[in-house]
Design a protein around this nucleic acid. Structure first.
Lengths: 350, 350
DNA sequence: ACCTGTAACGTTAGCGCTAACGTTAGCCCC
DNA sequence: GGGGCTAACGTTAGCGCTAACGTTACAGGT
């Protein structure tokens, strides 16, 4: 009776643990010390140009890749930045891609931690997780800002985007108030006097700012001010749908709707159509964010564009300054929005 | 003249480097050795139940968080899995979220590296980057599979999704061939005999499989087989738009279009409408993937659903097996698709 | 009493890297 | 011509953790 030993698995298990070339090997081949090799590959002074070139050539030849975990462990920089965001939402996800581009543009890589669906809260340790390999972390908050409070103790470099009024961390945000004002003015200019508003998730400062602008402008411009015209949403498409249904059921319907974000505008569009009405003939619709989808809808959505690329660049810059100097520059940084007129807004029916 | 020393910055810079509690501190407080503490927090044998509880209590109390970089450096497991994908595409991005859920369900965290736009190729080192903190890496390929060939040398545990015929890495994929066949049969059953097809990016096996099914089924079912009815696409919305424009310009238009993915179906919808036709009255439209958006379009898109959650779970399982044993189980794993009939398909006009 | 075994610990070494110091050789300058 | 300086290196220690071995104590068998 012969027994087949499964040492194949054993061998493979060892192989799976094998690693690439290390800096030590580069140094050995180049005949220099570990530190000289380190200085060379990190482009730091203390090495002659010839030696540097030689070392870089060898590193390249043997396929040396820096071990960022080791770099970070020993107190160095990794040129990786971490991002914490909820990829489920279109705006956030667009923003993350923008941060990735901005990071690469300044010679950094980006690693993303996607927060689970709202409800379950992620362990605080995810920030640590990212920080263990990244130089700093950019957080895009889907929750109320209190989520981060216990992190303020830790001295991890953190920058937030759209974090609201809590001044615990350096922040960059769009000018939500004036953006919303732009939207209302646009509808007003078209001749609308009865405008419905679908709020966002009011635990977020961005939603509150947009709401505040709606109320202020409605008053300033002398628009109809029934309480019914404000329907609570939550920034989700489904929330927009439900809210718009309520607006559609009103005895005196609005002639235009401002949805606090594009996802809700999408949902509102469905509700309006289900009510047998069309956009923009019967009801004008304007959103906020200018997500990629907005231009691709039918009809294309009029909306307020958030300056994604600028916000991303600003956040990266803040973070890198924070990492380098330890103390961030003035903040919050607020960036202007832009009205994008497409085909969902028109003058009201005569 | 007084000089304000800016030692504030200096102090802060030091603070930014501060770290959290380490396992050594836990061990010291508990009055045990480092190794005992390690065994306790990693839930491994060799510690009495009382000591374990005590150590875990202390770890919790002082907010100990394992340093995964250090764990990985010293050869241990981190319970983090890395994902490389292009988040720009809706299907991929949905899939990544599915992987995240599946990972959390088995007690792991997920870190994502988002590939830059097609064109610029990412450095091979991103796989290393992820591997330096993760136990293994799941790659969702947007490019032709040759992208990964130079990685096959490295012995990093890698699992691919939708990677095609290259058997270099364990793979999980949807049954693209039979899925596409389902789509054609559905249109055929409705009475369509003249069906247009918008191909995907044929560098990808998934696109080729769907194309092959279209050709085969068209033959089997005796459908019109003009070459004109196949328009080249690239899996992007824009590509679908352009391809559908060509189909619309045909002297003898198809009565139905099968787009190789939903993004292209979206683009096709625009082109059809611009041609003054409506879906599904004039032209039926069916996609592939069942991205989240598909159900939210107007009208909602009939499509072939890829079993995202199953694919994600399968990939995770493959990866963990690979990490544990060094050699993966049988592969490729092919999972069945499902026809989702919504409102973009109908019998052809009489 | 002796060996063997085993559960429950502790010690040592090292993963790959960088800060923080050496050390050496060559240079300038009064 | 000796002190001081700097560029170009090298050495040492340690980041936080785990594998791979010790070591100890105590149980059980003969």
């Amino acid at each position: 009776m012969q027994v087949e030993p499964d040492n194949v698995e054993g061998t493979a298990a060892v192989m799976a643990q094998s690693r690439g070339p290390t800096l030590a090997e580069v140094a050995r081949i180049a005949g220099v010390s570990l530190m000289t090799a380190s200085r060379a590959v990190n482009n730091r002074p203390g090495v002659s140009d010839e030696k540097r070139e030689e070392i870089l050539g060898i590193a390249d030849a043997i396929g040396y890749v820096a071990n960022r975990a080791a770099q970070k462990l020993s107190g160095g920089r990794t040129h990786v930045i971490g991002v914490i965001a909820q990829l489920h939402t279109p705006f956030t996800s667009d923003l993350v891609l923008g941060i990735g581009s901005a990071a690469r543009a300044v010679g950094h890589e980006m690693l993303v931690y996607s927060l689970p669906d709202e409800g379950r809260r992620p362990p605080d340790s995810v920030v640590d997780l990212l920080h263990q390999v990244a130089d700093g972390v950019i957080v895009i908050l889907p929750y109320a800002s209190d989520y981060l409070t216990n992190l303020s103790r830790s001295h991890i470099p953190i920058v937030t985007i759209e974090a609201g009024e809590t001044a615990e961390f350096p922040t960059v945000a769009a000018d939500n108030y004036h953006g919303a004002a732009q939207a209302i003015r646009h509808l007003h200019d078209l001749g609308h006097r009865r405008i419905g508003f679908i709020t966002g998730n009011e635990r977020l400062a961005s939603a509150r700012d947009r709401h505040r602008a709606f109320v202020d402008l409605r008053h300033q411009l002398g628009l109809d001010a029934d309480d019914d015209l404000v329907a609570m949403g939550d920034f989700t498409q489904r929330g927009g749908f439900v809210a718009a249904e309520r607006l559609m059921a009103l005895a005196s319907r609005p002639t235009a709707i401002f949805a606090a974000n594009d996802a809700q505008a999408l949902g509102a569009m469905t509700a309006i159509r289900q009510a047998g009405l069309s956009v923009p003939q019967d009801i004008s619709l304007i959103g906020f964010d200018d997500i990629l989808l907005a231009a691709q809808m039918h009809p294309p959505l009029t909306t307020i564009r958030q300056p994604l690329a600028q916000m991303a660049r600003a956040a990266i810059k803040l973070l890198l300054t924070l990492v380098a100097k330890g103390e961030p520059p003035a903040t919050p940084i607020t960036l202007p929005t832009q009205l994008i007129v497409r085909e969902t807004t028109a003058p009201p029916r005569a």
